[in-house]
Design a binder for these strands. Structure first.
Length: 497
DNA sequence: AAAAAAT
């Protein structure tokens, strides 16, 4: 649409593909917005949900000086947030409490259809938007509205009249970068703010970076390697950057994730723009990353959630004991395709790219309609398959952990772990963080969802037990993998049939 | 050659 393309960047990444892309993401964002209201309602129904966010300050010195302020909560006086420094934050009851520009308020109500801030938004937005703009690390449940927190942060800290990059957001996958940019453009539609998506270009319309004009958009969203490429080519200035966001921050700062890239980018930006505010958002922070993160945001505000309280109650989890791999296939064909069609869209997670293609081929060969997406495919193919799924043209999507994090499609009610997520270094241990992110693809904004973990070996069984123990959450077993009735009962229990 | 990014 004309509006969209004029407000977005025309630089580098294919303008044509992007515009097309944006339309699909934007359509989706409407659904997301609509469900935000129901999320608020869902939260209201369930008061114990409110106790889930536990905030704490790790900066001891500051706490003594500032005296550890209490944060007022609009919904529940039992929530106490200790913050760092002297600033007193008042949780936002409405978006009007945040002294946002009227253009931004209009975007929130008209474009996003939001009515009031979600829990995490109410708590973090004042922290993000109140001087002296302390750093923030915030953990909140999957689908609770974290994106809005940092997108709103970026949009309101940026000066639209100044044609230089002032906000940068770094994401682990190009899909997530694009999704976040789409949300930003939609929310900021009336602000005149423009954005640039710094992700690898598709081979078809590759332009060497030396031929690209420097970035003049106020907001840059992208993946680590490409951001680095643009800055070192001196095409992306970091002098005026006021706010730096890491989405899926635990992964961005993990040793086996993007730690080196992230640290380098953070250092460089802090060198050229010392007062830059750093925001770290994720649904998961394991102990190792948490310890490291606390060193990065010294004196900042910190919000963490206990791991036992992170599992989404509205997403029912099951395990299915299958005698062999063939039985797993059979469950997909006779149960998942049968019931899945009735309850919305389905994502099937597998461990490797290879399994993704093979499973796809096998199912398609037998007439089951599905698509697959993973990192070995061409960029343009990935874009197309994601768009088809977002547009609802396809209902079953097979994927790797490419889509484990952040992928937001509210119609996804069914998630299958064809393979359980395991740690690369120790394949008999589960990757509990990835597990949580995967199941979080269902149940967006407090919706109902169901997850089936297909187990086949004793090792699978043991890994599943470890996951249950980690989250202190019992996962029910589907008694008989052959039984339609057992599956039907599971779907019904999850509230989906 | 585990997913991902990117060289």
């Amino acid at each position: 649409m004309a509006d969209d393309s004029s407000s977005s960047s025309t630089s580098a990444t294919s303008a044509a593909t992007k515009t097309e892309e944006k339309k699909s993401w934007a359509d989706e964002a409407e659904d997301e917005a609509a469900s935000a209201t129901s999320a608020a309602a869902a939260e209201a129904e369930q008061p114990e949900e409110l106790k889930k966010i536990e905030t704490l300050s790790i900066s001891d010195e500051k706490k003594e000086e500032g005296g550890g302020r209490l944060l007022e909560d609009p919904d529940d006086s039992e929530i106490k947030a200790e913050t760092s420094g002297d600033t007193v934050y008042t949780s936002a009851v409405s978006f009007e409490d945040l002294s946002l520009s009227k253009e931004l308020i209009k975007g929130l109500y008209v474009e996003m259809n939001f009515t009031k801030p979600s829990k995490i938004q109410a708590i973090t937005l004042p922290m993000i938007l109140t001087p002296p703009y302390l750093d923030l690390v915030a953990q909140a449940h999957n689908g609770s509205g974290k994106t809005t927190c940092f997108v709103l942060g970026m949009l309101s800290r940026v000066d639209p009249s100044q044609k230089t990059p002032q906000a940068i957001c770094i994401c682990p996958t190009r899909e997530l970068a694009q999704q976040n940019q789409a949300v930003l453009m939609k929310m900021g539609k009336y602000t005149g703010i423009t954005s640039f998506c710094a992700i690898p270009q598709d081979s078809a319309n590759y332009i060497p970076i030396t031929k690209c004009p420097p970035v003049t958009d106020q907001v840059v969203i992208g993946t680590p390697g490409t951001i680095k490429k643009w800055t070192s080519a001196k095409k992306l200035g970091t002098r005026d950057v006021k706010i730096l966001v890491f989405d899926e921050a635990d992964h961005m700062l993990a040793e086996d994730g993007f730690k080196d890239d992230s640290e380098r980018i953070m250092k460089e930006i802090r060198r050229s723009s010392a007062s830059c505010q750093v925001l770290l958002f994720s649904a998961t922070f394991n102990e190792t990353v948490k310890a490291f993160v606390s060193k990065v945001v010294i004196g900042g505000n910190k919000i963490f959630v206990k791991k036992e309280e992170l599992t989404l109650e509205k997403v029912k989890q099951y395990k299915v004991q299958c005698p062999d791999e063939l039985a797993k296939m059979d469950v997909i064909k006779t149960k998942i395709f049968e019931f899945g069609q009735k309850v919305g869209q389905t994502i099937i997670f597998v461990r490797t790219r290879n399994t993704a293609s093979m499973l796809h081929e096998t199912l398609r060969g037998e007439g089951y309609e599905c698509t697959s997406v993973h990192g070995a495919q061409k960029q343009e193919d990935r874009d197309r398959i994601i768009k088809e799924f977002k547009d609802g043209l396809t209902t079953v999507l097979i994927t790797t952990d490419l889509l484990a994090r952040g992928f937001d499609q509210s119609q996804v009610n069914l998630v299958i772990n064809f393979d359980l997520p395991v740690k690369y270094e120790s394949p008999s241990d589960p990757d509990c963080e990835v597990y949580l992110h995967r199941i979080g693809r269902a149940g967006r904004f407090g919706r109902k969802g169901v997850v089936f973990n297909l187990l086949c070996t004793d090792r699978d069984k043991m890994i599943m037990e470890k996951i249950e123990r980690h989250f202190n959450h019992f996962v029910k077993e589907v008694p008989n993998w052959r039984s339609d009735d057992d599956f039907e009962a599971a779907f019904k229990e999850a509230g989906l049939l």
